[in-house]
Design a protein around this nucleic acid. Structure first.
Lengths: 237, 237
DNA sequence: AAGTGGTCTAGACCACGTT
DNA sequence: ACGTGGTCTAGACCACTTT
């Protein structure tokens, strides 16, 4: 009941890609292989694969086969921006400074920020860093990471690599939430950003999950005059 | 060459809907009628209609037929918020005031705002209105509408109905762009919003298109403490 | 040259909602 | 009850691209 065969084929493949079992560039089975595997006609397989291709999850190439689409770097960047890449795209020099970095067991506040219901403490990393463009402060980043998902080995990388960039390239996510607001910089952030305390800032708070598990919470504060969020989109989808 | 038959069927129907020849709620021909009309099999027609249904342009109902979708107050709300609905959802009383409303032929600045390349002037409506929640100013709206698309009869409705709400329910769009930034209210808007001029505000600029034609440009200014934009999303799709 | 995906056919049965 | 769309089959030919 419920699910049709082409839907099942589609979600089977989707699951393998999202779980990471099939990575970017991997070839997925040929149509005739899937026909055998599911005991169905080619049209049915084709409908499943066409759907996946339309959403951009796979690419289909004649004579070669169908492949897990390359980077989400392209499509995901539209929604989870990579700050160094954005600054580079504007032709500006990028700068990064790690301001603080603390490992601890999660407090109640941490779990609220990560939107965890549970009461159980988990190891988290709490860090703060500053992004610069052309030498000038561009954004402040306050971040909480779930160390049950982010491996400890990664932590030392954050001395030189922005954690957002590292995450984008190493941890697949299945869901995210952006919360965008405006507010004054306030005294502490004003000092770190080199602006006056009542400067209007764009504040982006983002949470990401991998399946049921929270991955990270981040609050990015941009002085208003330095940043615009742009999103182009079509109905429904 | 180039275009396959199901693509041609699809774009034929798309054109009729976007031109307004077939309006929301209209029934489009049955599959078997299209089979005759194009002299093809049902699968081919089905592929065309399925595609249109996936993008939300039509709705298909068993036993009844396929219909031009009503422009989607529901699903679009996630991306193009309807302010009265949002305020009602919070349980607050909603208020609307039309502050100014001018009909004119587009200036160069108007066409820039609408992202029109052409030099040819078109009739536009320039209006400004204020939204209130619980009696307090909630947001200012500055809007430019393309009167080649929005019918003149609608204009008088804007005395009492917010133009964004009217558009959401009457004009289908195919593409939109949000541009989000933060900045001080400034003296003029501060007065209209009842805040101090240096208050941090969230500014959302949105452009929408119907096919190649610009529909509207709107700038919404929210006092920072009153509004958050929330978007939940998944990769790819 | 060979084999992939892209498209299309002419059927079929079924689920479902309108009548 | 009926007719719609939803799904599926077992073929077929073609265009393209890699080998």
């Amino acid at each position: 009941m419920g699910e049709s065969l082409h839907q099942r084929i589609r979600s089977d493949i989707e699951a393998r890609i999202l779980s990471g079992a099939w990575g970017p560039g991997d070839r997925i089975p040929y149509e005739h292989e899937l026909m055998e595997q599911y005991g169905c006609s080619r049209m049915t397989v084709s409908k499943a694969l066409s759907g996946l291709a339309e959403t951009g999850l796979i690419e289909r190439r004649r004579r070669a086969g169908s492949f897990v689409a390359r980077p989400l770097a392209q499509s995901a960047v539209l929604q989870i921006p990579d700050i160094p890449a954005e600054i580079a795209a504007r032709g500006d020099a990028y700068g990064y400074e790690l301001l603080s970095c603390t490992r601890r067991r999660s407090t109640k506040l941490d779990r609220d920020r990560l939107r965890m219901d549970g009461r159980r403490a988990i190891p988290v990393l709490d860090l703060c860093c500053r992004h610069r463009a052309r030498g000038e402060p561009f954004a402040l980043e306050e971040r909480l990471m779930n160390l049950a998902i982010v491996p400890e080995e990664a932590v030392k990388a954050f001395d030189t690599i922005p954690p957002g960039t590292w995450l984008l390239h190493h941890v697949p996510w299945t869901e995210a939430e952006n919360r965008i607001s405006a507010g004054p910089a306030g005294p502490a952030k004003a000092k770190l950003l080199g602006v006056s305390p009542d400067t209007a800032c764009l504040v982006v708070e983002r949470r990401t999950w991998r399946g049921p598990d929270p991955v990270t919470f981040v609050r990015l504060t941009y002085p208003g005059h330095l940043y615009e969020l742009v999103a182009r989109f079509t109905p429904t989808r």
